[in-house]
Nucleic acid binder design. Structure first.
Lengths: 149, 149
DNA sequence: TCCAACTTTAGATTTAGTCTAAATAGTGTG
DNA sequence: CACACTATTTAGACTAAATCTAAAGTTGGA
C-alpha cells in the first residue's frame, strides 16, 4: 500500500514531472487497476473519491503522464482514425513530434517467442509500430506538433 | 492505370466483398495516395470527384474494407483512447470480436532487423499488438462486440 | 512574502463517428 | 423480364470524445 505510494512518488521525481494530487490520483488508479481504461472510466472512478475533479484535468494529467513516460497510450477498438490500403506487408513508424506516420519495410518476428507469449490465443495479425523522431523533425525542420494523448 | 483497376477488381473478387462504386472509389483513393488518411480526408477527397457521397458511406466502406482485409486501420496521433500505467514491459493482444485488451508477457525483437528497417530514425519505443480472438470468445462465450473501425 | 509560472476548474465548443428511416441498387429465381 | 428480397447509400440528426477558454487556485523559488 504505502509501498505503492513511495513507488509512485519516486516515479514522479525520477521523471521530473511535478506531482499534483490529481496526477497522483490518476496514476495511482491506473496502477491499481491494471485494465486498459478509457479517459472516461478514469474520470468516473477517480471522481468518485475525489469529488471535484474536472474532466479536462484527467486529460491534462494523462497527457502529462504519457509525455513523461509513466503511462502508455494503447490504441484499442474504434480508436483507429487512420487507414492504409496496402496489400504489401510493412510496419509503421510514428513521429512523437509531428505525428506523421511512415511505412517501414517489413522484417520478420520471432514467431516462436511470439506464439509462446500469445498462449492459447489465435492470432490473425501482428502489428508493429515504432515510435520516435522522424528525420524531418530530427533535422529541426519541425513543422508543428499535435501531441499524442 | 487500368492495371490498378484490374488489380482492385481482383481484390474485391478474391475477398468476396461486393464491389460498389463507393467502395471502389474509397479503396482506389487509398491505394493511389499512400498516405495514412483519416476518414475525413478520404471523404473530402473522394467527394470532390464523386459529388453525392455521404460521410456515412465512407465509414461503411472503410468498415467493410477493413473487415475483408483490404484496408488496415492504423492508430496514429490522438487516436489512443486507452491508457496503461505499467512500468514493466509487455505487449498487447486485442480481440477482434469483443475488443478486449490483454497484456502479453514481453518477448524480444530482432533488433538488428528493426534498426535496419528504421533507417536513420531514432526510435524511442516499440509497440507490438497482436490481433485475433481471445480465449473467452473462442470458447463461444462471446459477450458482445464493438466492431473495430 | 511575493511573483511568475504552472495547474485546475466548469462549461462551452469542436470534432469524429454512429444511427435512422427512407430511397436506391443489385441479385437470384421463376 | 418481373418479382421479391437483400444489401447499400443517403442526408442529416444525434452522441460521445476530446479540446479549448478564461478565470481561479497552487506551487516553488527569490
Amino acid at each position: 500500500m504505502s509501498d505503492v505510494k513511495a513507488q509512485l512518488q519516486e516515479a514522479f521525481e525520477r521523471t521530473g514531472l511535478r506531482q499534483t494530487p490529481q496526477r497522483y490520483d490518476v496514476l495511482a488508479w491506473l496502477v491499481r487497476h491494471r485494465k486498459h481504461a478509457t479517459a472516461e472510466e478514469i474520470f468516473d472512478a477517480v471522481n468518485r473519491t475525489n469529488q471535484r475533479l474536472s474532466r479536462a484535468t484527467v486529460y491534462n494529467a494523462l497527457h502529462a503522464l504519457v509525455e513523461s513516460g509513466l503511462v502508455r497510450p494503447v490504441a484499442g477498438e474504434g480508436a483507429a482514425a487512420r487507414f492504409d490500403a496496402t496489400l504489401d506487408r510493412h510496419h509503421h513508424f510514428i513521429c512523437d513530434r509531428c505525428g506523421s506516420i511512415e511505412d517501414l519495410t517489413w522484417f520478420d518476428l520471432p514467431s516462436k517467442a511470439m506464439q509462446a507469449a500469445a498462449g492459447g490465443r489465435s492470432v490473425r495479425q501482428v502489428e508493429i509500430t515504432l515510435h520516435g523522431i522522424c528525420q524531418r523533425c530530427a533535422r529541426g525542420k519541425t513543422k508543428q506538433a499535435t501531441a499524442s494523448v
